[in-house]
Structures are given as structure tokens and as C-alpha cells.
Write a protein that binds this DNA or RNA. Sequence first.
DNA 1: CTTCGAGTGCTTTTT
DNA 2: GCACTCGAAG
Length: 977
Amino acid sequence: MDDILHGLNKAQREVVTSEASVLQVLAPPGSGKTKTLTSRVAYLIAFKHLKPWNIVTCTFTKKAANEMKERIRSFIGEELSKQIKLGTFHSIAGQYLRKYGQHIGLAKDFGVADTSDSKAIIKRIIKKHDLTSEAPKASGRISANKCKGIESAQFAQTAKNVDQQEFAVIFSEYEAELKASNLLDYDDLLLRCCFLMRTHPQCVSNVEAVLIDEFQDTNTVQYDLMSLFAQQRNMITIVGDPDQSIYGFRHAEIKNLKLMKDQWRDTLTINLEENYRSSGAILHAAQTVIEQDESRPPKKLQATHNYGLRPVLRKLPSAAAEAAWLVAEIKRMCALSGGVLQHSDFAILLRSAALSRVIEAALGRDGMPYRMVGGLKFFERVEVKLVVDYLRVINQPNHGEAVERIINLPPRRIGDATVKSLREEASKRDMSFWDLICGIAQGKTRSTTKLNAPAEKGLASFVNVILSGRRKLEVAEDEQISLVGLINLVAKKIDLQTYLKNKYENEYEAKWSNVEELMAQAADASDPERLKALMEEDTLPAVDDLDQRSTGNEDALSIFLANIALTATAETKTEEGTEPVPQVTISTIHSAKGLEWPVVFLPACYEGSIPHSRSDDNDEERRLLYVGMTRAQAMLYLSCPIKDTQKQETTMSSFLTQPGVQLYFEEHGPSMSLATAKGLATTLRREQPNLSGFNEGKQGLDRDEDNYWPLNGEEAPEERAKWDYGKAANPVAAFGASRPASWVPASAVTTQQQQGFSTASAMMSAGLGTVKDDFNAAYDDLLEKDRLKAIDKKRLEATKNSDTDVPKGRKRQIEGQGSISTFFAKRRPPSMKAESSGEHFTMPLATHTSRSDPLRDISNLDRRQLSDPLPSKPALAGLHKPRIAPLRRAPSSHAALPNKGYMFLSSSPQKPEDEENDPEPISEEPDPEDEVAQPQFKPASTFHTTSLQTLQQQPAARGRRYGVKPSINGWANRARK
DNA sequence: CTTCGAGTGCTTTTT
DNA sequence: GCACTCGAAG
């Protein structure tokens, strides 16, 4: 008893030991919801003597299910815990249907139609009838109806207007299609299971207790499912939090909470109120956001931690800058936390998965390890899906969807028209698609569809692949081919490697490694031990009066496939023997639910993103933000780019611009002192940092304050200088060389430079003033910006009040620390050294880190060079249009990119070996004042131009490489102004 | 009839 | 940046 109740507060104990039969637990974020629920399960088994296999526990995500399993195991041990019926609604429903499906006329071995299957079917129906509906909308509508328990026939009867009738057609044909292919979609799993339990209550007669996690996310069908599970004993415990209801789109009904109270009048409600996760400051901020919802009943939420650091609400110039800032902050926090924080302590949570691209690029550029959860799932990647579809068809050839998807992959000269004709013929003859083509290929069936010779050959080869796969399975069990063997067979038969190589060229390696990963997973799944465990887990307790379908002889393939559709994340296993590298997590807010991290970033907090433009429930969007914010333990960063990815101006999220909200936020990341680091450690209950670790971290940093970007969201001065005089001017110059050896010799450059210059002067006179003037103005501006941002916060606020007092423009005075000296490198940028010795100083520009900022190390330049005129941007920008190397998704797989027609940018923090041992600091670090006094310094010859041809001659260097899109926006923006 | 290239438009969240 | 459509060539 003590074990189970240990560490629980009063309210939690009350929940765990409650005698009430129906129990609602309202558990706000961080209140120990999962802990409480798992403790109750353990308690019921240990003290109420319930049998584990008579306890049903439903979660929404596989992740939550696994976590709960893990925790229960630590309470009651492996043996008991694995007997509990614990899983997602869908997986539990699936289990019941597999065992008892025959009683409701469900064929054995039904498949699960995933979203793309459903979408494909609907699309086809729409096309067939030449309807105007859109597939995704129709799909959502079908799901909405199903979730409410409305069936297609029922809908068709009530359909009145044209639109409804049209939809009724899609709906019923969709259902028919699924039935014909022996498929159930996600909703069907739940619906059919409800039907089963209603018509055959015996099958759940053993259930003694039902527990539901995240109850606020249940939809009507799931609610029914819960009631039906509990129909014998009415012993139910649910935990939930209306404030965290973020699945309205999946037709979750918050009102189920009330419904439940009405259905079971003696429902006991217990509120958990203490938050054990977040610092007070974070909690306050989150609270002000959620309290904007006036319809929401007020709720208490008590912090148990210290106040901690105030959350940050940061403005940045662009999505790219936001990403760069975020990376810089992670670095800074890591370095200055004195060892308290590492990469795995950071999470970046997004409203939509698509936002991750810029961020992944920034992380990749920096070489910071990360993992992306949510977004595209492993089993949804084309190459994986391809193989899985083959397996599906081999396992179950009547899976019409899968057959059609792969019949011409790799290309077999069987086009859409042929497929369509075949499909129609099949339905006319009332046979399955597979049976038809199989018959044709074997010459048994005479087809009315005329096939040309190549198509016929293609068809035969396809059928052959499938049949040979099936043959391997039909032999006696002990001779049966392994799952991996089967995948290999398929891969060989369809010559997958060649296909992938041809189709994806430079992505080939990544794609193939995914296939290998699939094999590894297959090997894992067909491991006899594991298989046994899986089968055991799949057992349902025998009940009187109702036969279970024997699944004893179910093969590894079926089990593997059945699990795929219901597996949320195929956890990429860490390589054996290697320490897992701490990784930053990128996730959607939705899939971050229930999780927590010491530091959380919520980027893209603008109108249209959160609240999302496609959402019609603002309150749900607000709750979503709330969920995101409350994932943070010690530090929370919100940020808003002034321009979104499409360079449209944004408005900050209305949830954050409500009066008073901003009082809870700082405008920039915290100054990190040893004391701050200690505070973090306290909040996180971690070991205190020591001074030496702190100092060490500080030394490795370029800057120790969040002061690179101005607080008002404007472009960083250094960045502007780069844009105006570097990157924008010359896309080809955006070639950063990390190894001088492979650099273009200066002589090769000269012609291009001169070319550029000559055009430049002509262009420049067209109304933009001289380059010189332009530069001076910008430079002054830049100094001013830097001065402003260097002033500490208080002063800034003081000046803000009398805003206009701050002279704009030409103030050269430098105050305080953090002044211009931050512009100059403490050490020579590596690539500069080799080049600056020659006749021409050719400094590669446009690495995005400040490491090679053109303004750095300015004192080191040959000053005669500096008086050269500047080339103009448009002149150079128009010269070449380099191809863009695709960004690689996972930084883990860096195949060498082709060495033709690509440009590379490489700014790896890991310097190449040859520079590694060159910490030689520049002796004459310039005195800031001095520099300012010499306005003739212009980064004119920090230009380096070269042609595409020259680049093509470069050998593809090794190392981390990212294609970089040259931007001429810098120029375009300026020109407009 | 199939394939391939160019051009267009859009882009929530999950089982 | 990607998925999808459309039109032209094989």
C-alpha cells in the first residue's frame, strides 16, 4: 500500500483509493494525472483483487499507452501488468473484433484502412460519378457521421437537398468499397466494436473496471464504447481536463463529462489542483491565456515550484530568423546552464507540422541533433509504404486499394486507363480486382479489357511477384520464409534498389535506409520471443457462451501488418552500444500532449497559425496554446516572426495581445548567470551547476545574451549588412568553403568580379545613390541598432516611454558593454586566413552564422582593397541561377550530393581538422572606438564571386552540407523602400 | 496509352 | 516545398 500511495498528495490518494464506482478526476496539466491513474490500476489489482485481464484501460495515443504500461509495470511487475487490457481505443477495439468479429459477420483478417486508403477510395468515387465534392471534405464528413453513430443507409434516408444526396452516394459507396476489400477504417473499428458489445454483451462480461485517460477527447462512439465495456459492473474511472480538449476536429465532445454525470448519478468528481511540473511564472502566463475563455468555469491551479524565470515572448523579423534565434537560444541556454541542460531538455512545439521545415533547416545547419515526432510517420513514407503495400497484398490479395497502388510501381506500363477498365470489369463480373488480374495473367480468364503487349507483360510480372510471395507462406510453418526474407524477396523481385535509385537519385540512400529500417522492424516483430509476447498480449479472457476466433495459427506477417496501422510511432531504435545522443525534440502541440520538457519553444505565434486560419473554434485553439505552454517545466519561449514563411506580414496571436498578457512575458531570453542556472536546477530538481562548468560554457559561445536580433522584430543589424552587401548581391557568393584547399583560386575569380563591377556601376546610378553613401548610412544604422540592443532592459524601457527622444540615425556614441566589439571575431574565421594572404582577399560570404560575418575582423583586411567599389545586387543576382540542392530531412544521413550544378553552404560548428588546432586569437583585436572613428571601412572586398562553372569543377567536399537557396529578398526589400 | 516535364496552387491537428 | 494537374512526346 505504501508503495502505491507513496508520493501522492491528498487529492491523488483520494482518487486512488476511492470506493466510488464511477469516478471523474479533473486533472489540470502537470497535476500527476497519469501517475494517479496508474496508481489506481495498481491499487485495484493489489487491494481490490481485481484480475488484471479484467481491467480495460483506454488511452488516445500509443505513446500514452506505452508510458502507462511502463509505469504500471514498475508498480506490479511485468507478469501482472502485461495482462491488463491497456491500449488505445482503436487497438483494443481491434483486438475484440479479431477475436469475436465472426459473431457480427466480420471476416477474419480484416485490414485497417488508413487515411490514405480512405482518401483514395473517396477520390475514386467522386471521379467516377463526376461529383463536385472534395475528397478530404467528404472524408471528414463521413467520419463525422460515423463518430456520431450515423450509418450510410440511415443518412441516405434523411438526405434532402442535392448536396446531401450527393454525399449520401459517396458515403454508401465508400462503405461498400471497404466491405468489398475487407477493410475497416479507424471509425469502423470503434463502431463495429460497439455493435459487437451491444449484440453480444457476453464478450465483455468479464470486465470489472474501465479506466479512461484524456476523457475530454472522447467522441460519442468512444463514450459508447466505454459504457459498453462497463456494462456489467459500472466501475469507471476517467481522468481528463476540459482545458486540454484539443481534439474537436476528431469530434471529441467535451459534454461527455456532463453526459457521464447524468448517466451515472452517483459519479464522484475529484479535482486535482496542484501542479508539479511548471515554474510559477510559466503557470501564471498559461493561466492568463486560458482564462480569456469566459465560458470556462474558473479553476484553481496551484504551483508547487518556485516562481522561476519569466516566459519570453520574442519578436523576430522572419520565420528563418526565428529558427536561427531559436537555435541560438538553445545553444546559449545549454552552454550557460553549467551542465544543467542538454539538448534533450528542449522541445519545439508547433501548431502544424509544416512549420518544421525552416526549423529543421536551421537545426541542420547548426548540426544540432533533433528528432521530429508527428509529422510524416515512418509508415507513411513512400518507400516504406510501397514495401508494406506489397506485404499487404501478399497477405491479403483482396486488399483492392493496395493492389491498385502498387500494380504500376515500379512502372510496368499499366496506366490509369488500364487500371480503371480492369476495375470496372472486376466489379461487373463481381469478382475481386486481384482475382481478375490473376486470372488474366494465368490465362484462365479472358478479359474484356484489351491490354497491349507491354501492359500484359507488366501485369504478369506483378502477379508473379505476389504469387511467389504467397507461395513462400503457404508451405509448412517450419519452412516458412521469415518476414525479413519476404521483404527481401519482394525487394529483389521488383528491383527496389534500382527503382529508388532512378527515381530519387540523391535521396536514394535515405530512402533505402528506411527500407532497411523496415526490415529491422520486421525482424524485431518476427522474433519468436516477441511474437509470443504479442500474441499473449492479444489474448482476451475466455468468456462463457461465446467463441473466440482462434488466432493461434496467425502468422507473423498478419500480426506485423495489423500492428502497423495502429502503431503511432515506429520508434527508431538507438544503435546498439552507442549512447543515445541527446536530441532536441520537434513536435506538433497535439502530439506533445501529456509530455513535458524543461525548456519549451512555441514558435509562429501569429494569427492564422495559432489560432489557425482553418479552425473555426477559437476556444480550442486557445486551449491548444495552453497545452503547449504547460508542457514547459522551467523555461518557456513564445515567439512570433513579423513575416511568415510566405513573407506575409503577420499579426501576433490574439491570445497574446489581450490586455495584460504581455506583463507575464519578457521580450528576450534571460541573462544567464550562475544563479539563474542554479534556479533552473532547483526547478528541475537536478544537480546544481558549478562555476567552472558555467565558465567553460561561456567561453565556447559567440554571444552570451539574446541580443543579436532587435527586440522590435527588425532584422538584425549584422544580418542586414550581410543581406545588403553580400548574400543578396550574389547568390553564387553564398558559397562558404570550410576547406580552403578546394577553394577557387583568386585568379579564377577576378574576371567575374570585374564583370560584376562593370554592370554594377551602371545599375547603381539608377536612383539609389552611390554605393558608398548607401553603405555609410547602413553602417551607421547598424551601429545605432547595436547600441540600442546593448542597453539593458530597464534602460530600454525608460527610453521607450519617451520614445522619440532616442535620436534615430546617426548617433555614433557607444555606451555600455555589448557594444560594437561583438561585431568582431575573437578569432579569425578559418576560411579567411588562407585566402587573405593572396593578392585578392576572397572571403566566402553568407554562411549564416556570425562566424564569418563580413564585418568581423575588418581590421585584418588590406585596407586598399576596402576602397574598391561595390558590385550591385541586381547585376550579380541576375547572372546565375544555380540549382538548389534539396534540403535533407534527417541530418543523420548525409549522402554526398552530386558535384554538379549545386551550391553548398557549409558552416559546421565542427571545423575541419586542418583548422581545428588553430585557436590563434587575433592579436590586434580592434578597439571598438577606433573602428567607429574610421568610416572608410567598407566590406567592399568581402565579396567573392565565382561562376557556376567554377563551382562545378569543385569536387564535392565531405562533411555536413546543405543546399542553400540564395535570396535576393534583401535587395528586393531595400529597393522597395 | 504511358511517361515525363512544366506549371499551379495550397499548406491543421490523429487513430 | 510538395502534390497534383495538364499537355506533349514516345
